[in-house]
Structure formats: C-alpha cells, structure tokens
Amino acid sequence: MTKHRHFIIHKPYGFLSQFINNQTKRRKKLLGELDFDFPEKTMAIGRLDVKSEGLLLLTTDGKVSDHITTRGKVEKEYYVQVDGAITNEAIEKLKNGIEIGIHGEKYMTKPCKVVVIENPNFPERIYKVRDDRHGPTSWISVTLQEGKYRQVRKMTSAAGFPTLRLVRVRVGDIVLNDLKAGEVIEVDKLY
C-alpha cells in the first residue's frame, strides 16, 4: 500500500498552483520552484490564481483532493482587500448570492459568510497593491463552500468593489497561521 504525502504551503503571489506549465508563450513560476523536494504525483487541492496568495494544500492522494474540492462541504476563507469603502448593501449582495459569469455562462453564487475586517497587516507583497493616494480600500472576510473559477474576484467586482489583494487563510480546519510566503510544511494527514 502506497503511503501518501500531504503538504500545507503559503503560495506566494506570482506563482501558478501547479507543477507543469501547459502554456508555451510565457514563463510563469511553478510550485516546483519553491525550496522543497515534492514527491512525484503531488497535486494542488483546488487552485489559487497567479495574483492570489495564501493557503494551498497539496497531496499525492486523489481521494483527499476529491473530498475537499468536489463535495462542497469544506469551507474556504479568504481575506480580500477591495477597492473603495465597501457598503453594507454590497456586503448583503455578496452574502445572499450574486450573479457572476463562469466560462461565458451566468451563475448565481451560493449564500456565503461575508464580514468587514480590520487590515490583517500581511507582509508587503513584492508587487505593491497601491497606496492611499488612489482612494480608500477595505478588507473583508469571505467564507465559501464552493470554488468556481476566480469566484471571489468576480463576486467583489459584481458588487462594485474590485479585488486588489486576495489571500486564502483557511480551508476547513486548516489555517495559514504564521507560514511565510513560499514556506512548505509536510503533515501526516489533511482530512
């Protein structure tokens, strides 16, 4: 019986959530470039786009990946910096479900948890978001049980407050805590 391996990483800004780049045009940073020797057949559980950062789970066990990504029961929490001083009306729209586009089709998001939070004081990114000269920003926590393509970014944009920075801080009971960008921890199990 094969012993599967599991990892928790803090995906840095600018990295793809994969080990192989299927695009031939532009060179992008891949997870295999992090300072860690991942075993063969390691896969990301879910994805974070290139501009997103934070908690990413990796495994060699497809069943664990399937449990987290396709059953829709595992919560994912994101801290999101949005452009502007977010309104209560926008928060309610996000909470109750908002229409977004997924691969050219209209999609109504499922109800979720959304609250305004204080600036979480994450370390500065290599590529600065922007400064206060361009107007106010707000931070919100968005907790979903689904995960459509670029969903959180599309939701905040549809509510009138585009995402400036997105950091996943929790998947189920697993939290980002004090992991630094690019840091990898191997764990005995994920779920």
Rank of each mutant, 00 (worst) to 15 (best):
G97R: 01
E89P: 04
K110M: 11
V114A: 04
V114P: 03
N96W: 09
V80A: 05
R133T: 15
M108F: 10
V115N: 04
G101L: 05
N121L: 03
T70Q: 13
R71A: 07
T70W: 00
I91S: 06
V82S: 04
V82H: 07
N96H: 15
E118L: 01
D83K: 14
E89L: 09
T87P: 02
G101M: 05
E105Y: 03
Y127F: 12
I91M: 11
I117K: 01
R71H: 07
K128H: 11
K110P: 04
E92R: 10
E77P: 02
Y79T: 01
V114H: 04
Y78T: 04
F122C: 06
I126R: 07
N121W: 03
T109D: 12
E124C: 14
C112Q: 13
G97W: 05
G104K: 07
K106G: 12
Y79D: 00
L94H: 02
A85K: 10
P123K: 06
N119T: 07
I100C: 08
I126D: 15
R71P: 03
C112M: 14
D132K: 13
G72E: 05
E118Q: 01
I102E: 15
K93R: 12
P123Q: 08
K106W: 09
P123V: 06
T109C: 15
R130D: 12
